[in-house]
Design a protein around this nucleic acid. Structure first.
Length: 380
RNA sequence: GGGGGUGUAGCGUAGUGGCAGCGCAGUGGUCUCCAAAACCAAAGGUCGUAGGUUCAAAUCCUACCACCCCCA
């Protein structure tokens, strides 16, 4: 209620939830484009597109053009090494892997400057988490070969720091306030470093379309980056001749965020019951899933008469995001739930089995990739 | 550089010298197909840190630390 009067700040660093009304607003007022039928068809292999988890984008058309003309393009995203992988980071990671499979060169950033600025974790302490996170995405299928991927740590990559200072000249206090609200100064710096991360493919290689798959809460970074790119990375001319084209405005895809397993606004580190990590003991994961919010009715009788409410159900949600491969089975379970034929206890049990299988399998793959991750990040 | 303010449980707060309390969150239980909601119960504190005054300090004094505001 009060929200309508308040200024709309979507904050990449806070844990505020985002509701349907916000999504509409982002599309109407902030220029995010809906994923239309054409984009949908072109990306139909992507589960997140099919299931409308990725709901919006900027400049996806540049990517399709590059694909058509067989020109190079990039996918860029990263992770803040402040803890283990969870279902939220899994979404972005899978998106990167998907785009790489479609032909993009993948640029993956370990955002250790941000984990210092945001969480107070010194670079050295972020190393282990960085290795762990990288091993996770390798296990999910990221191909690290040098022609297909470039992986870096912010603190060790001078180019991204250069960009921070270069574009910093274009920014005023009022602009950062409008985008992020009042924050610790270091967070603004981290945001500018991230501008460097997003532009890195075009700096290291040549101007090319870049897609940044992110959660919708990261859009402020995308807006800032596009604004600064437009103003700073223009055509470079020598003697009236263009020697380097202007950069492409970095594009993005936006996915909806998973809410907390326990029914709270957002999965957050603060609230351990809202999420589980990939490094967590299996019995702890099971316990959290057992306690997950469902859309079930008061008792069995009412459930059979009225049917469940899968829209509210976290079990249904995480199956949709990650753990049910089969579209038909998913739709079928939705139907059964609404008709009152599927009981939550039973559905939960099924879901738990799938999650446990996934985590155990993932751990096995990951274990073998830790050394590889160390090698890539040059951490001994 | 100067001035003012704040610091009490995970979070929000009450407490002006005499047993450190309340709300929310978290935990356990009842209920439930499982959760949620509701109800019941238990738990949680070096009162920012270090000194000092006092029979007695969250409370008064000193220094330091962290954060916020104002002035130059």
């Amino acid at each position: 209620m009060a929200k309508k009067n308040k200024e709309f700040h979507m904050d990449p660093w806070s844990a505020r939830g985002i509701d349907e009304e916000d999504y509409e607003r982002l599309i109407k007022e902030f220029g995010i484009e809906r994923i239309g039928e054409i984009e949908r068809q072109k990306l139909i292999d992507n589960r997140f597109i099919r299931r409308k988890i990725i709901f919006g984008h900027r400049s996806l058309d540049d990517i399709f053009k590059a694909i058509e003309k067989k020109q190079p393009w990039a996918v860029m995203s990263g992770i803040k090494p402040s803890g283990p992988f969870h279902l939220g980071t899994l979404t972005t990671a899978l998106e990167i892997v998907e785009f790489q499979k479609m032909g993009a060169k993948a640029y993956y950033c370990i955002a250790d400057i941000e984990s210092w600025e945001d969480n107070g974790i010194p670079y050295e302490e972020a190393e282990e988490a960085g290795v762990d996170n990288l091993a996770d995405i390798l296990a999910l299928g990221l191909d690290p070969s040098p022609d297909k991927a470039y992986i870096w740590r912010q603190s060790k990559e001078p180019i991204v720091k250069d960009v921070c200072f270069k574009v910093g000249r274009l920014l005023t206090q009022n602009m950062v306030n409008a985008i992020y609200g009042e924050k610790r100064f270091g967070l603004y710096l981290a945001a500018l470093i991230q501008v460097g991360d997003i532009l890195l493919p075009q700096i290291l290689d040549a101007p090319q379309p870049t897609i940044v798959p992110v959660g919708i809460d990261q859009d402020p970074h995308i807006r800032l980056t596009r604004d600064l790119t437009r103003r700073y990375y223009k055509d470079i001319k020598e003697d009236e001749k263009i020697v380097r084209d202007a950069f492409f405005l970095p594009g993005a895809t936006y996915h909806k965020l998973l809410t907390g397993l326990d029914g709270t606004d957002k999965m957050s580190k603060r609230n351990p019951n809202s999420h589980f990590t990939f490094n967590e003991p299996i019995d702890s994961i099971i316990k959290k899933l057992k306690g997950a919010l469902t859309g079930g009715r008061k008792n069995k009788k009412e459930q059979q008469e009225l049917g469940g409410e899968p829209q509210k159900c976290m079990i249904y949600k995480i199956l949709t995001y990650h753990f049910e491969e089969d579209d038909e089975k998913l739709a079928d379970d939705f139907e059964k739930c609404v008709k009152g034929e599927l009981m939550c206890g039973e559905h939960k049990k099924e879901c738990i089995e799938k999650v446990v299988k996934f985590i155990e399998n993932h751990q096995k793959k990951k274990e073998k990739l830790i050394d590889k991750a160390r090698e890539i990040l040059k951490i001994g």
